[in-house]
Design a binder for these strands. Sequence first.
DNA 1: GCCGTCATATATCGATTTGGCATATGCTTT
DNA 2: AAAGCATATGCCAAATCGATATATGACGGC
Lengths: 178, 178
Amino acid sequence: MAMNVRTLCLGILTFREASGYELKKEIEDGSFSHFIDASYGSIYPALTQMNAEGLLTVRSEEQAGRPDKKVYAITEQGRTVLAKSLSVLPAKDKFKSEFLFEMLMQHFISKDHMDEAIDKQHADLLEDLAHIAQKRDRVCEVGSKFVMGYADSVLRAAANYLEAQCPRLKKSKAKAAE
Amino acid sequence: MAMNVRTLCLGILTFREASGYELKKEIEDGSFSHFIDASYGSIYPALTQMNAEGLLTVRSEEQAGRPDKKVYAITEQGRTVLAKSLSVLPAKDKFKSEFLFEMLMQHFISKDHMDEAIDKQHADLLEDLAHIAQKRDRVCEVGSKFVMGYADSVLRAAANYLEAQCPRLKKSKAKAAE
DNA sequence: GCCGTCATATATCGATTTGGCATATGCTTT
DNA sequence: AAAGCATATGCCAAATCGATATATGACGGC
């Protein structure tokens, strides 16, 4: 039960059928990218296993030059299992930040390295914000809009905080906006 | 190299010596709680291993009734290894949210369940904010203040977004503030 | 024209990490 | 008095990550 790679894959497959590769792409760059992670090492075994259990069907699609694509689709049984997994209230959010760990290590790190870390963090945040802005007007589903708005608020708050605390960053932001 | 449980433990041990149990408490409830995680299953083996490698020293402290406490302290060699790990620029933040996944599954979930999930998310955010507010004026180190301010900004942005999108939540917030 | 790198596509494998359990004791809540 | 929680260490199975292997076509640089 609960949330794991299986639930995640089943969830995406309720939108459309997809191969393992496409699922990974969706998790990496698509609507799911800002709040979920999964590697090939967990996706492929999960798909194979769920197919064996009857939660998915497979269809091999030939492709010129490239290896055959294995396109998976969710079954009725898969939907039932997914519904059961989603009936559990979501676990608390988990936020992992090596950057904030470094900020707590001020007594142990050079000023230069701190500045580099802060610049990188700021750049990462702006990159994510740009990524969202770029996709935002192209989506129309309520869920996607809500999630993008949430991610945007949070990332913007973080970027603003950095800019307020480290005035030096304001310049680079102005520069990026040109 | 880079960030893992070892680096994390070494880092905390530059502030003060501590047992595995105390390290876990610090990670769970202390300054590190909002952006890092580690379980006993990773902490204890890491300490044993790093002790064997000479990065830490141990001292057994007797305790009435309870098992002996093994208090670890970082060595010069440990500091060297930590410095090397911290010299790598921090990896990008990772944010895991089952809540946002559920929000993308709107087509698959009942309105009631959605509302429950949103209420829980909102409550979790307010709880974290309260936790920070409560500790905030008691800290004086620059690093801690910076990190708490960062966490506060981000969590507040998320809570505000939920309240703006789901007006129903404003009432519960007003109620909590009484 | 050749070379490096990237994108497509599936898959495995070692290492790390999680989350639950076992063990032991005393204190507090029901 | 029973149940649960806090202290304290530690193990173990299962999940997951990150890197690598394999194969091919496209695209740009030298």
